[in-house]
Design a protein around this nucleic acid. Structure first.
Length: 535
RNA sequence: GCGGGUGUAGCUCAAUGGUAGAGCCAUAGCCUUCCAAGCUAAAGACGAGGGUUCGAUUCCCUUCACCCGCUCCA
């Protein structure tokens, strides 16, 4: 399937529009149309129902270490700025980037390393981005090339000091960029604000700056104690939240995959440290299965465990649930959801102050005066087990899913073209969205076969009755074949047709979107028949 | 942010320095007893801004958006 075909169908049928389209659009923002809003709502409602409201907290589900409770939360998009300082987003999201004018490559300022070297009376800083083990070789090779020296003349290079960060270099005109052959091709570092900044208060100044949340998770952490104190929940338990988040992506691209305004479905699951590895495994497998059950069953979906060197060292495991989107290069997958073991990093950061993720054991990051770089709340966010008397900071398993990405994956997976015979028996290409019935925006369409002989009256009554139970569409215009095809493109799983026989025996046909099969059902049994099939 | 490409009707495409045609869809009507039939009618577009010109959809500049590559992906 070509991505443009899906994009075109999404616009044509009202799944997705570009934001502010009449003004030329806005990069990284997308609107859901009449069909899209139903689809995305169904994705979110399926998640909420499966994870929260229908959860059985009395018995341990299959694969779970024990029974557990689930509860929900809906917190604000704008929070106290200190939340983002302690979470690490403030520092991390203020990356400085440098560009290379010669090669047009871009680097994260703090990731570029290099070493001072002098030869032939010139002192330069050779920068590199290669892996640490190949660093020395790359530096020497490029230094020799710059000074037009042969390998056997390597002793003419006078190295000064160890490999160090580019951030220690003040004069960029003597820097040889990581991929450059000319000196001074790097720009000055430029700041990229990956969090959306806003002002709280009508007279707001820079001191009133706040941020739109880049993830919903922090709202759960900062409400951890409130939930504990108000609900009688006991560990292990999870708090779920669905909501908008905002990230000023440098390059929004690939339809809705990387949007600047997007919606997340996140769970923070709190458990005893000793049990956390078992819970991590449970959530990782369960979340993967959720996508499988909703139709992403093929080889295009995968569960990928992060390599140890991809992990934050305080995490004992992270897995991505990934989908092979059609816009990605062959063999590449895009992330739908990350399931992360986060240890006690988050709760402790909000207690003690921002932790330095590079320390082990974790300690609070300090500034040049030895004070916490970002001070925590000072509140005790530890948990006391009333039965054992044990007090500890819970560990956290975080299944964090993208609602828009999941919706997009379901759309991609559903898009199908097959051959169906037309009126004359000739094969025609049929475009059909094979969405899971739980996700389909419209569950059923009701047609009178022809617009006469009392068929519309019966059809309208059935339409009104079905509409009380699930989204139903009514259409009496034109040829019935055309009406079927229209519903195929919208992903409607069932079409009910009132025909001549209905008038005499009170039965109708139900037509299956995927198989094109039809069978007759008593008029009074239609609702029950469909409800059973829509689960 | 850089380099390349693309923007004409809801969709897919034409043509043109003298204000644009078609197919499909959608709308109304006729006809139709199960998979995009047919007939009739009406409707609908040069991404935005500026410049050159008597006149710009066409040439030039700027901008916005989309696609590809680089970069980024917390």
């Amino acid at each position: 399937m070509e991505m443009d075909q899906l994009v075109s169908l999404c616009k044509r049928r009202g799944f997705l529009f570009q934001s502010s389209e009449i003004y030329g659009g806005l990069n990284g923002f997308w609107d859901y149309g009449p069909l899209g809003v139903e689809l995305k709502r169904n994705v979110k409602e399926a998640w909420w129902k499966d994870m929260v409201t229908s959860h059985d907290d009395l018995d341990a589900p299959a694969g779970a270490p024990s029974s557990f409770e689930m509860t929900g939360l809906d917190c604000t998009i704008i929070m106290h700025p200190q939340v983002w300082k302690c979470s690490g987003h403030y520092d991390l999201f203020h990356d400085h980037m440098i560009d290379c004018r010669q090669t047009n490559k871009r680097y994260r300022y703090d990731q570029v390393r290099g070493r001072w070297v002098e030869a032939k009376g010139q002192r330069i800083f050779v920068a590199t981005m290669v892996e640490t083990q190949d660093e020395a070789e790359d530096l020497q090779r490029r230094a020799l090339k710059h000074f037009k020296l042969r390998a056997k003349d390597a002793e003419q290079l006078s190295w000064d000091g160890d490999v160090t960060s580019l951030t220690t270099v003040e004069d960029t005109s003597v820097v040889l960029g990581p991929d450059a052959t000319e000196l001074g091709s790097l720009t000055e570092p430029r700041e990229f604000n990956l969090m959306f900044k806003t002002i709280v208060g009508a007279m707001g100044t820079e001191e009133d700056a706040a941020f739109l949340r880049p993830e919903t998770a922090q709202g759960i952490f900062v409400n951890f104690k409130n939930v504990l104190d108000s609900t009688r929940v006991k560990i292990p338990f999870g708090i779920a939240q669905v909501g908008k988040s905002f990230r000023n992506e440098i390059t929004p691209r690939n339809f809705t995959f990387r949007s600047r305004e997007f919606e997340q479905m996140e769970i923070e699951f709190f458990c005893h440290p000793e049990q956390s590895p078992a819970w991590y495994k449970y959530w990782r497998d369960r979340r993967f299965q959720w996508y499988v059950d909703l139709g992403l069953a093929g080889e295009r979906l995968q569960l990928r465990d992060h390599d140890p060197d991809e992990l934050s060292h305080y995490s004992t495991g992270t897995a991505d649930i990934e989908y092979q989107f059609p816009f990605l290069p062959a063999g590449e997958f895009g992330e739908l959801e990350g399931v992360a073991h986060r240890g006690d990093f988050d709760l402790r950061s909000h207690m003690e102050g921002k932790l330095d993720p590079n320390t082990c054991p974790l300690t609070v990051e300090v500034d040049e005066h030895g004070q916490p770089r970002h001070r925590g709340s000072g509140r005790d966010l530890s948990y006391r087990d009333d039965e054992s008397g044990e007090k500890y900071v819970p560990h956290v398993i975080e299944p964090s899913a993208g609602a828009d990405r999941a919706t997009l994956a379901f759309l991609c997976e559903a898009y199908t073209e097959d051959q169906a015979p037309d009126e004359k028996g000739k094969l025609q290409t049929r475009t059909v969205m094979k969405l899971h019935p739980r996700l389909a925006p419209i569950k059923a369409a009701v047609f009178p076969l022809v617009k006469k002989d009392g068929m519309p009256e019966i059809a309208r009554d059935l339409y009104r009755a079905l509409k009380q139970h699930f989204p139903t569409f009514y259409d009496e215009k034109g040829a019935v074949g055309r009406r079927y095809r229209r519903q195929d493109e919208a992903g409607t799983p069932y079409c009910i047709t009132i025909d001549g026989d209905t008038l005499s025996d009170k039965t109708v046909t139900i037509r299956d979107r995927d198989t094109l099969e039809q069978w007759r059902v008593k008029l009074d049994d239609v609702e029950g028949e469909l409800s059973g099939r829509l689960k």
